[in-house]
């Protein structure tokens, strides 16, 4: 089964956009953070969890969605936000703490909110699940369409919220997709040291949901699996636990050299961006020239977003006192 050319191209573009953005952010992140490392220093302060390696998950899942669908995610949100179409300039400005940011600089990298595309993220592990299920619940009550998706890591599955919310999703047959990004690591703890079963998608049956495991960090298989899950959700068949094998190519956050990751690399642990590029060229979807053109154009777009953020004004200090109550 082959996907339409336009979708394959667009998933490649999304992966490139996400990767380039993370690369630019990485460069900015290290400004003023050496020789003494301090999370708080430099133009891009705070913890930074980039999505290097996980781009296929954002690109594959989000390419299958409709505008009305809703997303919550966690501390590693970039690839999903970019794929969902969160405004790149405003999101960049948010990460740099600027007034023009999505939340006027209140949220930062882990706490990205863009109501226009039904997107939000939060830094407390697995706690995006309840709100996502509630969004699905609200749509059901309002008799409106729309599927809610919550993204979380393999480590986050061990949080109580996962098990509580999955049961409720199954019980109420909510239009819901739980996307587990299985990169095998939670900070320095390997999945085999934290999780009593091999595949979390196997748990779905017991929650009255459908479980699917997608191997290989392949955006096309991810897209197709998401389509199936969306169909089930929209036709009233209820929720899916979609577990996706992916890879964390960076440390847990910037400053983590990840020396604890040793040993042989499996096939899925290769960098997925050049792999997909080569595949599209092999399949005759893109020429080498077209691929470089895409990279050049997106590179300029990302640069422009970062420049916009760097040039933007900081908020007024007093603004900290606004926005506590509606």
């Amino acid at each position: 089964m082959s996907l339409p050319t336009s979708i394959r191209r667009s998933m490649f573009e999304t992966m490139v956009r996400s990767r380039f953005w993370d690369d630019r952010l990485t460069t900015q992140y290290w400004i003023d953070k050496t020789p003494v490392f301090a999370f708080g220093a430099g133009p891009l302060p705070g913890e930074l969890h980039t999505s290097h390696g996980q781009e296929p998950v954002g690109a594959g899942v989000c390419a299958a969605l409709s505008d009305e669908d809703m997303i919550t995610t966690g501390h590693r949100p970039h690839h999903i936000a970019v794929a969902r179409g969160v405004d790149l300039r405003e999101m960049s400005a948010e990460l740099f703490g600027k007034k023009a940011g999505l939340s006027g600089g209140r949220g930062g990298h882990m706490h990205l909110y863009d109501k226009r595309v039904n997107f939000s993220s939060s830094g407390i592990i697995a706690e995006g699940l309840g709100p996502a299920a509630g969004m699905a619940f609200a749509r059901k009550m309002q008799k409106k369409s729309g599927v809610a998706l919550s993204f979380l890591g393999d480590g986050a599955v061990n949080q109580g919220a996962f098990h509580e919310v999955m049961n409720i999703v199954g019980l109420h047959k909510l239009p819901f997709i739980c996307v587990i990004e299985d990169n095998k690591w939670a900070v320095t703890t390997h999945k085999s040291m934290s999780t009593a079963c091999e595949r979390n998608s196997d748990r779905a049956e017991n929650y009255g949901m459908t479980g699917e495991f997608v191997e290989g960090n392949d955006p096309e298989l991810i897209y197709l699996a998401t389509q199936r899950a969306l169909e089930r959700a929209r036709s009233g068949e209820g929720g899916t636990i979609l577990e996706i094998e992916t890879v964390r190519l960076s440390g847990h956050f910037m400053g983590d050299p990840a020396g604890y990751i040793t040993g042989e690399k499996s096939d899925y642990q290769v960098d997925p961006v050049p792999v997909y590029r080569a595949r599209l060229i092999d399949d005759g979807i893109l020429t080498e020239q077209e691929a470089s053109d895409i990279e050049r154009v997106i590179g300029a777009e990302v640069d422009e977003a970062i420049t916009f953020a760097l040039d933007a004004d900081y908020p007024d200090a007093n603004d900290a006192l606004n926005c506590t109550f509606a």
Binding site: G101, G105, R106
Partner: peptide, 16 residues
Amino acid sequence: IPDVSIPFSRPLEYSI
């Protein structure tokens, strides 16, 4: 800290 959540942006955070 005045009774507000802690903001991300440096000038906002430092002010509280």
